[in-house]
Computed example of a mutant assay.
Amino acid sequence: MCPTIVPLMRETKKEQDIYFTSLIETMKILVATEKPFAKKAVDGIRKIVEDAGYELALLEKYTDKGQLLEAVADVDALIVRSDKVTAEVIAAAKNLKIVVRAGAGYDNVDLAAASARGIVVMNTPGQNSNAVAELALAMMIFMSRNRFTPGTGTELQGKTLGIHAYGNVGRLVGRKGKALGMNVVAYDPFIADGAVFEADGVKKVASVEELYRVSDFLSLHIPATAQTKGSIGYDLMMSMPKGATLVNTARKEVIDEEGVARAMTEREDLKYITDIAAGNQAELDEKFGKRVFATAKKMGAETAEANVNAGLAAANQIVDFLKNGNTRFQVNK
C-alpha cells in the first residue's frame, strides 16, 4: 500500500499554517441564530474563523429546538444572539468548549450548566452600546413629545437624567444627555471610584432611592440577576418627580410590572417606555394610552453597525480563546 503523500508546499505561509493545523485538529464553530446576522457580519465571521484554520457552520432561521440540538452535537464553539442555550443544548454539545453571546446581556445562556461542564461563556460588551444609548435618548424625546402626536410636549434640555448602572451603555447615555443640555446623575454600586463619574461631568448619587427621587428621565441599564429581578416598581416610580419618564432598554425581568401599573394608576403624570413588551402590556396600553409605549420586539441592538460589531467580536474572541486561552470576557468565572 502506498503511503499517503502529504503536500508540503502551499502558496503562502498562512496557507501552510492553516493546512497543518487542519491535519492535527479542525475545530468547528457554529453560528446559531434564529434571527440571522446581516450578510456582512456573516462574511466577516467566516473570514475570521477560516483564516484561523477552523470550520464554520451556520444554523439560521431555525424553527425547532431539535434543529439546534442536532447542530451543536459536534461543535467546539457556539455563537448566538438571543437564542436560548439551555442545559439541554449544553448537554447535547459533547465537544463544546466556549459559548459567546453576541451582545451584552447573557441571561439566555444557562451559566450553571455551562460551568458544570467547564464551558466558558462570554459576552461582547460594548459592541451594541452606542445603538442602545441612541435608542434610549430617542425614547426620551418620543415620550416628551407626546409620542409625536398633537399637543404641547416638553424639552430634554435642563431636565435631570438619571442613569441606573454606569457601564458601557450608561456612560454613553450620560454623554449624549449632556450634549442635549441635561443634568446627569448616576448610581452604580459596583463603581466605587467617584473619579469615573467626575471625569464625565456626572454626579454620583449615594443610593438608588436618591437616583429615582431626582430624575425627570430615568434610563435603566441593570442586568437581570437574582438581586435585580422585579426590583423596579411601585415605590421607586412613586418617588420620581412630577412628569417623570422611566426608560427601560435593559431587561423585562427587572421590572415589577404590577407595581409599575399601580404607580401609573395613582399618578397620572408618570410615563413608561421600553424596548421589550411587558407581560401585561395590553393592560398597560389600554389603561394608560400615550403615557406608555413598548416596541414590537427588543430593538436596542437593532442597527446594522451593532449587528456587525457584535458578530465580529464574538468570532475574534472565540479564535483568541481557542488559540491563546484568552478568557477576558468570560461571564461564568
Rank of each mutant, 00 (worst) to 15 (best):
Glu198Met: 13
Leu218Lys: 05
Arg213Trp: 06
Gly233Lys: 00
Pro223Leu: 06
Ala195Asn: 14
Leu220Val: 15
Val208His: 07
Ser219Arg: 01
Asp235Pro: 07
Ser219Gln: 00
Phe217Lys: 03
His221Leu: 05
Val205His: 03
Gln227Glu: 10
Glu210Ile: 07
Asp193Glu: 12
Met238Asn: 14
Ala224Ser: 12
Ile232Asn: 00
Gly201Pro: 10
Leu236Ala: 07
Tyr234Pro: 00
Gly194Asn: 15
Ala192Phe: 13
Ile232Trp: 00
Ala199Tyr: 08
Lys229Gln: 13
Ser239Met: 07
His221Ala: 04
Leu220Trp: 01
Thr228Gly: 02
Gly201Glu: 06
Lys203Ile: 08
Phe197Pro: 02
Val208Asn: 10
Ala199Val: 06
Gly233Asn: 00
Asp235Glu: 15
Glu209Gly: 13
Glu198Thr: 15
Lys204Arg: 15
Val202Gly: 10
Arg213Lys: 14
Ser219Pro: 00
Pro223Cys: 04
Ile222Tyr: 04
Arg213Ile: 03
Ala195Phe: 11
Gly201Cys: 05
Val214Asp: 02
Leu211Thr: 08
Thr228His: 04
Asp235Thr: 13
Ser239Gly: 09
Val205Cys: 05
Lys203Ser: 09
Ala206Glu: 14
Gly194Ser: 12
Tyr212Ser: 10
Val196Ser: 01
Thr225Phe: 03
Gly230Cys: 01
Gln227Arg: 02
Glu198His: 13
Lys204Ser: 07
Gly230Phe: 04
Ser219Thr: 01
Asp235Lys: 15
Ile232Asp: 00
Ser207Gly: 05
Gln227Tyr: 01
Leu218Asn: 08
Ser231Met: 04
Gly201Ser: 03
Ile222Thr: 13
His221Thr: 06
Glu198Gly: 12
Glu198Arg: 15
Met237Val: 06
Gly194Asp: 15
Val214Ile: 13
Gly194Pro: 05
Ala192Leu: 14
Ala206Ser: 15
Ala195Asp: 13
Val208Leu: 14
Glu198Ala: 15
Ala195Thr: 15
Gly194Leu: 09
Val196Phe: 03
Lys203Arg: 14
Ser239Tyr: 10
Pro223Thr: 09
Tyr212Thr: 08
Gly230Gln: 02
Asp200Phe: 11
Asp200Lys: 07
Val208Thr: 13
Gly233Trp: 00
Ser215Asn: 09
Gly230Lys: 02
Val196Gly: 00
Glu209Arg: 13
